[in-house]
Structures are given as structure tokens and as C-alpha cells.
Design a binder for these strands. Structure first.
Length: 497
RNA sequence: GUCCCCUUCGUCUAGUGGUCAGGACACCGCCCUUUCACGGCGGCGACACGGGUUCGAACCCCGUAGGGGACGCCA
């Protein structure tokens, strides 16, 4: 009862789309919050005036929403700790900076970009290293400062970093991490344009928003000692830190566009369903432990998630495994869920059910689609294949596997068989009512017996003639779902074409 | 160049001193199916290397190699 509530945050900068790395970070924060009955905060870090865009904010929000990562506080969900855009929190950064000034922890730096570059060059030419800043303005006299101010030179504020000692923390993921203060330079906290830098704003906001755990990418490790120093200068207790391993491409280089899809919205466009994306991302750098199915619902993930099981080594993104997880989710879906996914894809193409097809039991589009999806069974494993799997049930100009057509349809014998089958069905099926699979099967087998050929000699040509493909669901079920009139017409057309 | 981290099958991983080093993806084979998937069964395949410590090391220590990350008035 006395323990404080977990508050975590995802803090993207709106400079692009939501990529898988960000999505994974967001997901781990979200899973931890939901597992701990904590609060998940979304904070937009738009302190870079040049690069931040509103379009990017939209893309990030859309990506998170698609994944189902709902935030308790953030854009569109004001809470007591808002606003949640850093650009709207500037007074707070100024006040906090004033505290630091009063305590002598920061100093004004009048160096321009050009100054710094010139001194870096000089240092390097002389064989001395350059670690980012040389402390040029650290000990300016009051007179020098006054002179610069009179000139109206813009100034940034830098943190006065201790020259010795160590800064360390116990990282949730890797354990103790330690940096020599000597390798840390006096970093800018407040830019000359009056905006805070990332490290300063993050500390101020994490503290102000009561964040208890900072879970972020491993690329932030080297920011942590600096942030810890800021907490110390302010006299604030730091949160706990956990750094998630990076996500690499299949070649173990940092995952990038050249490896394939990286934006969450691209995966959506490729037919990945959100629960599969979430499932796969959760498996990257985290595992549920020994045994147990890796295919997990979001609820199961929430229940099982633990920071203790987060890995410390970078993981390569495996598109094949994502596809597999996706197909598993698809296959395990109930009829209603399947229909919800399929209907829009059909509507897009104008594929609608027609009662004249005489399909038993199909009353309308939804009913027909349900029947087709059930027929697909385990073949319902990719949204991308769906149009191809369903097209021939709706239109006559369905795609046709030419090689298969040549082999199974376009020979004299096969054409003769198809013609005979068409005729047999026209005669053998009840004319006025929908026929079921068994009725088609009976006709096919009788005809094969009469002709003295194996049933397969009729089945294979029929499959290609009806669907254009060499693979499909059971042929008699396909016939049933196509309806007598269309089956007969297609067979006859194939026989004559 | 400086600093930090990581290292179990090709990939994701289980494993915390005694295991035939387990599972999943991918790949291969068989079964099921007069098709194709699904499914079932089986196979291939790893403790980066070298030293220690220990009766015993994937697990502990040191070193080497490889990989990743960070070195901005970007976040």
C-alpha cells in the first residue's frame, strides 16, 4: 500500500514516423505499466524547432493507437502533470534553470558554432583530442561576461561538471553502470534559442511528472550520467533506469530502411495485424522463459511481462518470424475477427455476394464471407494473400496460373473431361436448389467410374478451371461455395477455350 | 581516436557450478491430404577464442577477438 505507483513514459521526438525501435520501447513501457497497474505517459519531445513536425506527431500517435498502446496521460488526454508537449513547458525549464544558476551549477557559454569548430580543429591538428567542449567559458570573469552581454552575444547555459569522481547507477537491465566524471564534458542545458536541450528537459519533466522508471533504448546510456548529475545538482532523487538493447537488422547492423520495413505503418500496410506486431516486438529482447507458447495475446503479455527477463544483448529483427507470429494470430482468430479483417479488403475491390450463385446457406455478404473464411481454414495465414485466395469466388477474371492451365486444362483430354463434367453436373444437380459438396462429389466420382479414369483426372483439371490455381481448399467444398451455375459455366468455358 | 556495453544453433532465446545444453523461426525429410496449406513426427544445427578458479564450468575471474552504442546549442 505504501509503495508508490509506477509511472513510466514514452517520449518520442516528432521528427519522423514511429519505427520499430521506438515501438518496442513504447511497448515495454506500456507492458510494464499495465502489469504494475501503473500509469503510462506519452510526452512529445519537440524542443528541436527545426526538425519537429506536426505530421510526425500524427504519425506517432497513429502508430501507437494501431498497436493498441493507449496512454493514460499525454496528447488528447490531459492529466494533472501536463502539458505533454515540451514546447509548452518552457516556463518550467526556465524556473529550473534559475535554481541551477542560484546554486552556481551552470554558467553562460558565449561560444558560437564557429568558435567551437575552430578550436576543435586546432586541438586535433595539435594531436590533442577533443571531447566535445574545452571549458572555454567555464571561468569567465564578471567583466568578460558583462562585455559579451553588452555585445548582445547569444549565450547558452552549460552544466558545471565535476572533474573527478564517478557517477554510477544500477541499471534494471544490465546492473551497475559507471562513468568517470572526467570523461563527461560541460554540456549545454539551455540553448541560445531559449529552448532546453534534450537532457535537461527530460530530467525536468521526468521529475515533474513523477516518473518512477525510465525505460529507453540503449543508445541513451551515455546520457544517463549527465542526467544523474543534473538530478544531483537539483537535489532531486533520480528515477530508476533501464536500457533496452538495440534492434539490429538481419546483418547485425543497426536496423534501417534498407533492411525492409521499419515504420510501424509499413507493417500495417503489409498485412501484419497489431496483436502479432506487439507479440513479436515483445519477444525481441524479452522472453517468457522456459516452455510455453510464444504466441501470446496482449492480455497474456501484460500478465507475463517482467523487466527481470529483459535481455542485455542486441537482437536482430527477423521478418520471417514476424510473419510466422502473424499467421499464428490469424489462424487462431474466431470467425467474427476474421470477417472484420476481410470485409474491408473485399469492399475495396467491389467484391460482393450475389444470391444468383445458389450457394447453400449463404444469405448475404457477411454470411458468404464467413463461409469462405471457414473454408480457408489454416490457409487464412496472411492478409496479403487474401485477395488472391478469395478473388475467384467473386469475379470471373481471376488470376490464372498459366503453367497449371496448360498442364491441367489446355489438353484435348482434359478439355474433354471438363466438358463431360460440366454436362454431368448440369444434368446431375438439382436445377432449382443449391447443391452441397456431397452432391458434386457423387457426380464427379460417378463420371470418373463411367469414363474408367481415376477421379484425380477430373479433380485436378476442375480445380484449375474453377480457381485458376493448383492449390485450393477441398474441391467439392469449393464447388459448393461457388454454386452450381458458376461451376458449370466455368467448366464449360474452360472446356471450350 | 576516447568512453561504455554485449557474445548459447543462421535468427529469437531457455539456462545463474553437475542438463544427452531445451524451445521457437528458417531449412530438410516423413505422415496426413488424389491438390496446397494447416497439423503431427523426425532431422540439421550453438556455449566466440585462450587462460585461470573448481572434484566439476555455458554459468565465476582475467585476457583476446568480434559485434553494437555514445561522443551535438539532435533527441
Amino acid at each position: 500500500m505504501s509503495q508508490t505507483q509506477v509511472r513510466v513514459r514514452f517520449a518520442p521526438s516528432p521528427t519522423g514516423y514511429l519505427h520499430v525501435g521506438g515501438a518496442r520501447t513504447a511497448l515495454f513501457n506500456w507492458l510494464f505499466a499495465r502489469n504494475q497497474q501503473g500509469v503510462f505517459v506519452l510526452r512529445i519531445e519537440d524542443t528541436d524547432q527545426e526538425r519537429s513536425t506536426e505530421a510526425s506527431v500524427g504519425a506517432i500517435l497513429r502508430g501507437l493507437s494501431w498497436l493498441g498502446l493507449d496512454w493514460d496521460e499525454g496528447p488528447g488526454k490531459d492529466g494533472p502533470w501536463g502539458p505533454y508537449f515540451q514546447s509548452e513547458r518552457r516556463p518550467l525549464y526556465r524556473e529550473t534553470l534559475a535554481q541551477l544558476r542560484a546554486a552556481g551549477h551552470v554558467y553562460r557559454c558565449f561560444c558560437t558554432d564557429a568558435d567551437l569548430q575552430r578550436r576543435e580543429q586546432t586541438a586535433r591538428d595539435a594531436g590533442r583530442g577533443w571531447d566535445g567542449y574545452d571549458g572555454h567559458c567555464r571561468d569567465l570573469t564578471a567583466a568578460q561576461v558583462a562585455a559579451y552581454e553588452t555585445d548582445g552575444r547569444p549565450a547558452a547555459w552549460r552544466l558545471r561538471t565535476p572533474a573527478d569522481g564517478v557517477t554510477f547507477w544500477y541499471d534494471i537491465v544490465v546492473g551497475k553502470r559507471e562513468f568517470q566524471n572526467a570523461v563527461l564534458t560541460d554540456r549545454v542545458l539551455m540553448k541560445a534559442d531559449g529552448f532546453p536541450t534534450y537532457n535537461f528537459a527530460a530530467v525536468v519533466d521526468d521529475h515533474a511528472m513523477g516518473i518512477t522508471h525510465v525505460l529507453r533504448g540503449d543508445d541513451h546510456v551515455s546520457n544517463t550520467p549527465l542526467q544523474l548529475l543534473i538530478y544531483a545538482a537539483l537535489g532531486w532523487p533520480p528515477p530508476k533506469f533501464g536500457h533496452m538493447p538495440m534492434i539490429l537488422g538481419p546483418d547485425r547492423k543497426r536496423l534501417s530502411k534498407r533492411h525492409g520495413a521499419v515504420a510501424v505503418e509499413e507493417f500495417q500496410a503489409q498485412g501484419i495485424v497489431p496483436q502479432a506486431m506487439v507479440n513479436y516486438l515483445a519477444l525481441l529482447g524479452w522472453s517468457i522463459g522456459a516452455g510455453g507458447d510464444e504466441v501470446l495475446s496482449v492480455d497474456a503479455l501484460i500478465k507475463r511481462f517482467s523487466l527481470k527477463k529483459v535481455n542485455s544483448s542486441p537482437a536482430a529483427f527477423d521478418y520471417d518470424k514476424l510473419e510466422h507470429i502473424n499467421s499464428q494470430h490469424l489462424k487462431r482468430m474466431g470467425p467474427a475477427e476474421r470477417r472484420t479483417l476481410a470485409l474491408p479488403l473485399l469492399a475495396e475491390r467491389g467484391w460482393v455476394y450475389d444470391p444468383a450463385w445458389m450457394v447453400p446457406g449463404a444469405a448475404d455478404q457477411a454470411g458468404y464471407v464467413d463461409r469462405l473464411l471457414a473454408l480457408l481454414g489454416g490457409r487464412f495465414s496472411s492478409l496479403r494473400l487474401l485477395p488472391e485466395q478469395l478473388g475467384f469466388f467473386f469475379v470471373e477474371d481471376f488470376p490464372r496460373d498459366e503453367a497449371a492451365w496448360q498442364e491441367h486444362v489446355a489438353t484435348a483430354t482434359n478439355r474433354a473431361h471438363l466438358a463431360a463434367l460440366g454436362a454431368a453436373l448440369a444434368q446431375g444437380l438439382p436445377a432449382a436448389e443449391p447443391a452441397v459438396a456431397a452432391a458434386y462429389e457423387a457426380v464427379v466420382r460417378d463420371l470418373a467410374a463411367g469414363l474408367g479414369v481415376p477421379a484425380g483426372d477430373l479433380i485436378h483439371p476442375a480445380r484449375v478451371a474453377l480457381s485458376g490455381q493448383v492449390r485450393s481448399a477441398g474441391i467439392f467444398e469449393v464447388m459448393e461455395a461457388l454454386g452450381g451455375p458458376r461451376v458449370i459455366a466455368r467448366l464449360q468455358r474452360a472446356a471450350g477455350a
